[in-house]
Deep mutational scan, measured.
Amino acid sequence: RSTHNEMEKNRRAHLRLCLEKLKGLVPLGPESSRHTTLSLLTKAKLHIKKLE
Rank of each mutant, 00 (worst) to 15 (best):
E20W: 02
I48P: 03
L22E: 00
T36G: 14
T3E: 11
E20S: 11
S32C: 10
I48Y: 07
L28M: 10
V26M: 11
G24K: 15
R34N: 07
P30L: 15
A44K: 00
H14K: 11
R12A: 05
L19M: 04
H47T: 12
H35E: 09
K23W: 03
E8T: 08
K21Y: 06
L28N: 07
A44Q: 02
L22H: 00
V26S: 04
N5T: 12
E8H: 06
L28H: 08
L51G: 06
L46D: 09
R1L: 00
L51A: 03
L41Q: 01
L51N: 03
E6R: 04
K23S: 02
L46V: 11
K21N: 01
A13H: 06
T3G: 09
R1T: 06
T37M: 15
K21T: 01
R34Y: 05
L22C: 02
V26R: 04
A44N: 02
T37H: 13
E20A: 12
P30I: 15
K9D: 08
R11H: 09
R12S: 05
K43D: 01
K45E: 00
N5P: 15
T37P: 11
H14F: 05
H35Q: 15
L51P: 05
L25C: 07
R34A: 07
K9V: 06
L19G: 01
S32M: 07
H4D: 14
H35P: 10
R12D: 02
P27S: 14
T36W: 14
A44D: 00
S33K: 15
L41V: 08
H4I: 12
H14Y: 11
H47I: 15
A13E: 03
V26W: 14
H47Q: 15
R11C: 10
L19K: 03
T37R: 11
G24S: 14
I48T: 02
H35A: 12
G24L: 07
L19S: 02
E6S: 13
A44V: 09
L38Y: 06
G24Y: 06
H35L: 12
S2A: 07
K49A: 06
T42M: 08
T3F: 04
V26D: 00
L28Q: 06
T42F: 05
C18S: 01
N10E: 06
E20K: 03
G29V: 12
L25K: 07
N10H: 09
H14P: 11
M7T: 08
L46Q: 13
G24V: 08
K45S: 03
L40V: 07
L51M: 04
S39A: 10
S33Y: 13
L22W: 01
H14M: 11
H4F: 15
H4W: 10
R11D: 06
V26F: 06
L28K: 07
K9W: 04
S39K: 15
K9I: 11
S32W: 11
L40H: 02
H35D: 03
S33T: 13
K21I: 03
N10A: 08
L19D: 00
K23I: 02
E20D: 10
T37I: 14
L17R: 12
L25E: 00
K49L: 05
L22D: 00
P30S: 12
N5V: 13
L17W: 11
K50R: 08
K43Q: 05
S39V: 03
R34V: 08
E6F: 09
T3C: 04
R11W: 12
E6A: 08
R12F: 06
N10Y: 01
L28F: 14
E6P: 14
R11I: 10
N10L: 02
L46G: 05
